[in-house]
């Protein structure tokens, strides 16, 4: 008997795209205010033949639970090869649908993966000096707010 669905355990047993990318095009670092999980997501972005910006490579690292690992692993497999535009369309619900039964209390873990992706793309746009769409700006502001709360809640004085 397993606590989690087959799909979750599949990704958890063998997480895809774990690690770092040297000189990434974008890096998203997010934390989870609820439980204290931490996620780093790296993107390598390049233009394809049609001059569209495509995610060529993606890697992640997480200090988190089974569902956080499985979610991010799944997300990385979904965004690889996608245009940034399409990657940004992926929602928490899309991940949950693919993972099968995600316990209600673990829903916030799915958000972590999506947030990390948003932050990585935001980071890329910032570095490239590109205009940031209002939706992404909103996502970034939310992530920043969570980050401030986490620093206060989990490791106050540790921050320099």
């Amino acid at each position: 008997m397993n606590l989690y669905s087959k799909e979750i355990m599949k990704h958890f047993k063998k997480p895809q795209n774990v690690g770092k990318i040297k000189n990434p095009s974008g890096l998203g670092k997010v934390g989870n205010i609820k439980c204290g999980d931490i996620m780093h997501l790296y993107l390598k972005i390049a233009k394809d033949k049609k001059e569209r910006e495509v995610i060529k490579d993606v890697k992640f690292e997480t200090f988190g639970c089974t569902v956080a690992v499985a979610n991010t692993s799944l997300l990385t497999t979904m965004v690889k090869g996608k245009t940034i535009e399409n990657a940004l369309k992926i929602t928490k619900e899309d991940l949950v649908k693919k993972l099968g039964d995600v316990p209600a209390i673990k829903m916030h873990c799915s958000m972590l993966a999506v947030d990390a992706l948003g932050e990585a793309i935001y980071d890329y746009y910032k570095k490239e000096g590109k205009e940031i769409a209002p939706d992404l700006q909103k996502r970034h502001e939310h992530a920043e707010k969570v980050e401030r709360e986490i620093k206060r809640k989990f490791h106050g004085e540790e921050q320099g």
Binding site: P15, V18, G19, K29, G31, I38, M39, H40, E61, T62, F63, V69, I150, K151, F154, H155, E158, Q159
Partner: peptide, 13 residues
Amino acid sequence: RKISPFKTSFKFD
């Protein structure tokens, strides 16, 4: 630990 972003220290930068 291979999956973890903190391999050598808890640094939350």
